[in-house]
């Protein structure tokens, strides 16, 4: 019933070639087509940021995007990093992941994948943010458990470390 398109997209280092409906959102493609369920959906109005991933194209460096606000076809040719692609092949954690663990920056953990991806982008743009800059920078990501205080601590702890994805 809908038009379809063939896309080629690299996710967490692996290349995928799929035919998708034109209307398919990137987050649905990630979760339902290629099984990257580490990226989750928390709302339907692009407010919560739970689905945040990093996306880069030939023209654009890696930036955080809410994958509910990107069509899968827009990711054609792009490179996407999800929370599942952050740890090194030997399993060692990304500094931001480690900081969230060390600083108790999560409770239920549902917002955490998106929060971590946003934090990585925040630190890429501003490697040494103040607490206020961290709070402002994460204002597109909602957390209901932590009150954000330990998330801010986690991002501050990760600042200065190597945070490139």
């Amino acid at each position: 019933m809908s038009s379809t398109a063939k896309i080629t997209v690299t996710v967490d280092g692996d290349q995928y070639i799929d035919t998708v409906e034109a209307r398919t959102l990137l987050v649905h493609y990630l979760r339902e087509t290629i099984g990257k369920v580490g990226t989750v959906i928390g709302c339907d109005t692009s407010n919560c940021g739970s689905c945040t991933v990093l996306m880069s194209t030939a023209d654009e460096p890696a930036r955080s995007v809410k994958s509910c606000s990107v069509l899968a076809v827009q990711a054609d040719g792009a490179t996407v990093t999800t929370v599942e692609g952050l740890a090194a092949p030997d399993g060692s954690l990304h500094p931001v992941q480690r900081a969230f663990h060390e600083m108790h920056g999560l409770q239920c953990g549902y917002c955490t994948p998106g929060m971590i991806m946003s934090a990585i982008d925040l630190l890429r743009e501003n490697p040494d943010p103040t607490d206020e800059e961290i709070r402002d920078g994460l204002s597109g990501n909602l957390c209901r458990c932590t009150g954000y205080q330990n998330i801010v601590r986690a991002v501050r702890a990760a600042a200065g470390e190597e945070v490139a994805p």
Binding site: R31, K36, V37, G38, T39, V40, I41, T82, V83, E84, L86, A87, L93, Q97, F100, H101, E102, H104, L106, C108, G109, Y110, T112, P113, I116
Partner: peptide
């Protein structure tokens, strides 16, 4: 103590019902 639960939650290896 740092939480045991975190290992799966910070790496996306979670079992939410919708997953």
């Amino acid at each position: 103590r740092r939480r045991k639960e975190d290992a799966r939650l910070i790496t996306g290896r979670t079992r939410w019902t919708d997953n």
